Amino acid sequence: METLQIGEYKLTWLRGGVTHLDGGAMFGVVPKALWSKKYPHNEKNQIPLRTDPILIQGKGETFLIESGIGVGKLTDKQKRNFGVLEESTIELSLEDLGLTTADIDYVLMTHLHYDHANGLSKRVGEEYLSVFPNSKIITSKIEWDEMREPNIRSRNTYWKENWEPIQAQVETFENEWTYGPIKMVHTGGHSDGHSIVILEDGGETALHMADIMPTHAHQNVLWVMAYDDYPMTSIYAKQKWLEFGLSQKAWFTFYHDAVYRAVKWNEENKLIQTVKRVE
Rank of each mutant, 00 (worst) to 15 (best):
Y260D: 07
M232G: 02
V30H: 06
R153C: 00
G28M: 09
T19F: 10
G70C: 13
H116Q: 15
A206S: 13
R50M: 15
T12D: 07
W251I: 11
E61C: 01
G72P: 00
P53R: 10
T3K: 14
H194D: 14
R261L: 13
E66V: 00
V185I: 15
T51V: 08
S130L: 03
N45P: 00
T215G: 03
F82C: 02
A250F: 02
H41F: 15
E2P: 11
D22R: 10
A226D: 14
K276S: 14
K77N: 07
T172E: 04
W163C: 07
L129I: 15
N81K: 14
M26N: 07
L222R: 12
R50F: 05
Q46E: 11
P133W: 03
D115A: 15
K73L: 09
K77H: 05
S140T: 15
I90M: 12
P165Q: 08
Y106Q: 10
F244T: 01
H256Q: 09
V30P: 03
G16T: 02
P214D: 10
V107I: 13
N45I: 04
M225I: 06
V259M: 11
K37W: 02
L64S: 00
E2W: 10
L99H: 02
T274D: 11
K122M: 12
L11V: 08
D192P: 01
D228L: 01
E95C: 01
K37Y: 11
E91H: 07
Q219H: 15
I104H: 01
M225T: 15
V278D: 02
Y128L: 02
K249G: 02
T19A: 12
L85C: 05
Q57A: 13
I65E: 04
K136M: 08
E267G: 01
S135M: 07
T101H: 07
V221F: 05
L92M: 09
S130E: 14
N45G: 06
V278C: 11
T274I: 15
A237C: 06
M109R: 08
I54N: 05
V275S: 02
W163H: 13
K37M: 13
W13P: 06
W144G: 08
V131L: 04
V259Y: 01
E8Y: 01
K44Y: 07
S121H: 03
Y128G: 03
Q78R: 00
V131C: 06
S234M: 04
W265M: 13
K59D: 11
I152Y: 13
S67M: 00
T274Q: 02
P150K: 07
E268L: 13
D211P: 06
P214I: 06
E200K: 12
M184D: 04
M1Y: 10
T233L: 02
V18E: 10
I90Q: 10
R80T: 12
Y179P: 00
K73E: 11
D201T: 10
K32G: 07
P231C: 02
E279W: 13
P48E: 12
H116E: 11
Y106L: 10
R50Q: 13
G16M: 03
E127N: 12
K122V: 03
E161F: 08
E91P: 01
L85K: 08
L4E: 04
Y236Q: 04
F27A: 08
T75Y: 09
W144S: 09
E267V: 13
T89D: 11
I142A: 15
